[in-house]
């Protein structure tokens, strides 16, 4: 085990359907992601990039292969262990924010901590909210927030549990291009500041350019890599 590798994919395979309608969503993919790096995964829709991210996040089980996060083969864990591991080590940011409508910004952010009955570090959460520009929106309900503010809340939620790795699936898909730039810059500088690793799916070339590394997915396989 190399300590610099936070995420390792070993020959991952995930097929859907069978016979004529067999879809090779992830087709023998291997990848290593170093700690503290920003990796962008790009590809056309249907290229299997979302499936890949779901496998990395342990949201879906592969047909073959292993996903090793921080030295742990996540699919060797039992379901409840996996759920706990996920909450502790992985932060998710989705396109649809997935905020709970009946909770305000603060409550949404600290919710995952409550699930593991971890102590809420008020100073730390305040620091995140300050950095993310939501300091004055702590008590606001999601319904009154703009798209950008909702996504900021989701990012704060992902950062709050101090995960080792943040997985973002088209996080800016619903935002206009300026807000998109703002949110991704923010996400990038946050993970840089907190020493985390960011893996982001995007179809946007402009956003992908900001990454340290761009991985192109074609038909479930890695097509090209660019290092910056």
């Amino acid at each position: 085990m190399n300590t610099d590798i936070i995420l390792q994919l070993e020959d991952l395979v995930k097929y859907y359907g069978s016979g004529e309608s067999l879809v090779r969503a992830v087709d023998h993919t291997s990848l290593q992601v170093e700690r503290g790096r920003f990796t962008a995964i790009v590809g056309r829709s249907g290229s299997g990039k979302s499936t890949l991210l779901h496998l990395i996040g342990g949201l879906d089980r592969p047909d073959e292969g292993r996903v090793i996060i921080d030295g742990t083969d996540i699919f060797s864990l039992k379901n409840d262990q996996l759920a706990q591991f996920r909450r502790k080590k992985i932060g998710f940011v989705f396109q649809d924010y997935n905020l709970i409508p009946s909770l305000n910004v603060w409550e949404n952010v600290v919710l995952p901590l409550g699930l593991d009955s971890r102590k809420v570090d008020t100073a730390q959460i305040n620091e995140i909210l300050r950095k993310i520009g939501l300091e004055d929106k702590k008590n606001a309900m999601p319904s009154v927030l703009s798209g950008g503010q909702k996504q900021r809340t989701a990012i704060a939620r992902a950062l709050a549990s101090k995960p080792a790795i943040i997985l973002a699936d088209e996080p800016t898909g619903n935002l206009d291009s300026q807000t998109e730039l703002d949110v991704v810059s923010l996400l990038k500088s946050c993970v840089q500041e907190f020493g985390q690793t960011l893996v982001m799916i995007t179809h946007d070339e402009t956003i992908a350019q900001m990454a340290d590394r761009i991985i192109e997915i074609e038909d479930g396989r890695i097509g090209g890599k660019v290092e910056n």
Partner: peptide, 20 residues
Amino acid sequence: QGGTISAKRKARRGTVFKMT
């Protein structure tokens, strides 16, 4: 300094560099 740079092709001609 916690900033970014990315470039975008313009529809007709030219480039826009976006720095934050």
